[in-house]
Design a binder for these strands. Structure first.
Lengths: 206, 206
DNA sequence: CTATGTGAATGATTTCACAGCT
DNA sequence: AGCTGTGAAATCATTCACATAG
């Protein structure tokens, strides 16, 4: 399959959100223009994004809301549940475990790990923090689809290596390091301080 | 000033991190190649990114670590402290208040608000959750530079409007809506579920 | 001989504009 | 008439490659 830009994939996720919203309101069809307005983009962009995957609309009419939603879920691989583990039981790890937004979208967090003796055994949301030494055994017994790394940056690379060795093929990395992995492993980075720094740059230069 | 791509600004933040790290290790000079390796990019990219702002290196030698760090802090506007408020005292709001990574980079979270009676008055980190009705008065008494919105999406736009009316010029938005604001207001979006969906897309198509 | 700084070339993404259905 | 689907054009970002300085 043709390589699709990350920006396109992210917009598709957004469109899906909007469609689900429209669906909830009983709206039957939408135009590319409506999706564009809602998503802060242009109708041409919406149509182009969709056109990489097929022709889902009706000329003169627009897109049937439920059908397009099904198509997008299919494209994005959201027609199944994903098991997720969180590595690191600090503030953000805890927030992610409790975060309702993941489960609502089919991402089920099933475990959380830490190496801090004082945290192991504590409760985070409805999970108990497990000793990181159990990682390999646990992943062997019950593989996960995605690991979220929320550790100090010094620990992140080693944990990534262990996760990959244990079969994990997708990592969401909150640690401020560039993880080096085999290139069949997907890594996305989230860096919260970086977002604020981008705002800081914007404030200074406006 | 020439419009700089967001991707460039974000890389500059990364380079600064690496420089601070090198500085801590007492390394005096770095090459674009070293910064590139560390940041998962190319040396040409590093040099191009820097060249938008000036010539900071010495040919044949590289960049003086502390000098370049100072330059980058200046470019990014990180030579001062920013006051930040968090709107929404749920899981993520709490994590952000407690998150050490912000303060370490000069972003000081001074307040957190919610509209939920049961949360108001509770402690989050070392802050007390305040009633959102106090927002205008508080911002008048002590303006903030950046507001972080971590509310349900249904409340986000209205709060953004109130924040902007109260003088806030930069918003980091975790709610899954496209906020509509005056165009002198900076908005960056973070959408955690979206990150996982991008991984989901990648897993399905690999 | 090493590594920067930068135009020029390439590649990627977005926007345009219009033919083609409904 | 209205709105999609899509090549072609325009814009934007990255990579190349080399003259230049230490």
């Amino acid at each position: 399959m043709r390589k699709i830009a990350d920006s396109t994939v992210r917009r598709l996720s957004l469109y899906l959100r909007f469609l689900e919203d429209f669906e909830g309101q009983g709206i039957a069809t939408v135009s590319s223009d409506l999706l564009a307005t809602r998503g802060g983009t242009t109708s041409a962009q919406v149509r182009k994004d969709l056109s990489f995957f097929g022709s889902f609309g009706k000329r003169g009419l627009g897109y049937a809301v439920p059908e397009l939603a099904v198509k997008l879920r299919d494209i994005l691989g959201l027609d199944r549940e994903y098991l997720v583990t969180v590595i690191g039981a600090g503030n953000i790890g805890e927030a992610l475990v409790r975060f309702k937004g993941f489960e609502k979208r089919g991402f089920k967090v099933i475990s959380i790990y830490d190496d801090d003796e004082t945290k192991i055994g504590q409760t985070r949301g409805n999970l108990t923090v497990r000793n990181h030494t159990l990682l390999e055994q646990d992943l062997h017994d019950r593989p996960v689809d995605i690991a979220i790394i929320v550790t100090p940056w010094t620990a992140a690379q080693e944990l990534a290596d262990r996760l990959v060795a244990a079969g994990v093929r997708a990592i969401l990395n909150f640690a401020p390091v560039q993880l080096k992995t085999r290139d069949d492993v997907l890594v996305k980075n989230v860096n919260l301080a970086l977002e604020l720094e981008a705002l800081s740059y914007g404030l200074r230069n406006s």
